[in-house]
Design a protein around this nucleic acid. Sequence first.
DNA 1: GTTTTTACAATGCAGTCGCAACGTATCCTG
DNA 2: CAGGATACGTTGCGACTGCATTGTAAAAAC
Lengths: 204, 204
Amino acid sequence: MPKRVDHGERRKLIADALMRVAAERGLEAVSLRHVATEAGVSAGMVQHYFGTKDEMMTFALAVVREHGEARVTRAVAALGDHPAPRTLLRTMLVELLPLDEARRADGRVALAFLAYTAVRPDVAAGLHRETAALLGFLADQIRAAQTGRPADHRVDPDRAAVGLLAVLEGLGIYLLGGHYPAETALAALDAQLDLICGPAQPAG
Amino acid sequence: MPKRVDHGERRKLIADALMRVAAERGLEAVSLRHVATEAGVSAGMVQHYFGTKDEMMTFALAVVREHGEARVTRAVAALGDHPAPRTLLRTMLVELLPLDEARRADGRVALAFLAYTAVRPDVAAGLHRETAALLGFLADQIRAAQTGRPADHRVDPDRAAVGLLAVLEGLGIYLLGGHYPAETALAALDAQLDLICGPAQPAG
DNA sequence: GTTTTTACAATGCAGTCGCAACGTATCCTG
DNA sequence: CAGGATACGTTGCGACTGCATTGTAAAAAC
């Protein structure tokens, strides 16, 4: 083999450039040449690492998801060994909200891809599995958060998980659109957690 | 004046074609020629009624919103004069969910426009006002639905409205992506209404 | 009647698109 | 050192884009 280059690294470099273009000018501004320029490489190189544009898009979509996953993993790890379920939930969800510019950029790309995959159902299969797994995890945490609550304050964990994930998605979208400030979204998220888990326990 | 033609009608004809193209092939497939073909008219005519593509897009966005508004108005009117707040809320929200093919089409277009406006903040100003008005209305209904509930079952209407609207948006998106079936979304919506308004009153 | 204004159709243009087809430089293998 | 495979860069092609321009038919205004 000649000239050893890390394919994964190059692809990631290109995908990062794609995401920058998409975040700033929308997904329809993503072209081989624009991405190449943004990445500071030739258009031929982009073509070398991604035979087709769709391939490039699919890879970039995976990168966005990995961003989110890494963010959540890191934030959850910082919580220590056995965080309270509600704390764990809140930490995860807040991390997925577009509250700073980095997450806003990721969010814009994710939103664009959402619209993209809505018309290309074949690409969406992986997302379904991820959603199902996430829903399962949320439901588990909600179940755990409810132990010891009076029966008439309990909710169905599966439905609550669907609702909670929907709230997250919706808040993210309204935040991206600038419909209301971060505090409003955070207040709504906390209110939702209150509804599901009961009011936050005062420390002690 | 010559050859009197209803400008609004023509523009609506074209916008409808635009929405069909966007729903089937995504917003990036929307071009003057595609829209013209879909509408069964010449590209020149499209250009005659919309000097620029952006003008056409903006108009189409307004049409999408009117669709939703008309749907809600009709459904709410069918409820009669003084529906219970929870019934009113549920009727409104269900009507906005992409549960049949017509609403799925509208939803896809709305989603595409959401991503479109996320990068064009100037276009989004109208949406902000609409969101604020909708939030106010939801909060009013939630407030009304809570009269007579025990104090420890009440929630802040404003936060609950933000959460409810976010749930609606999120459920719509997951439905459009086919992440789960309609029943799951409806169950989650009802669970959310249960959390906010208390369990549905059995008839009588 | 003529004139003017509107409604459309057709064509053309400069730019961009994805992608194929090269060419070449580089490095590993034998 | 030759041979071959890989990693690019360059160029060009056909299709498409939004839009300006032009031409024409028809109806209102005079």
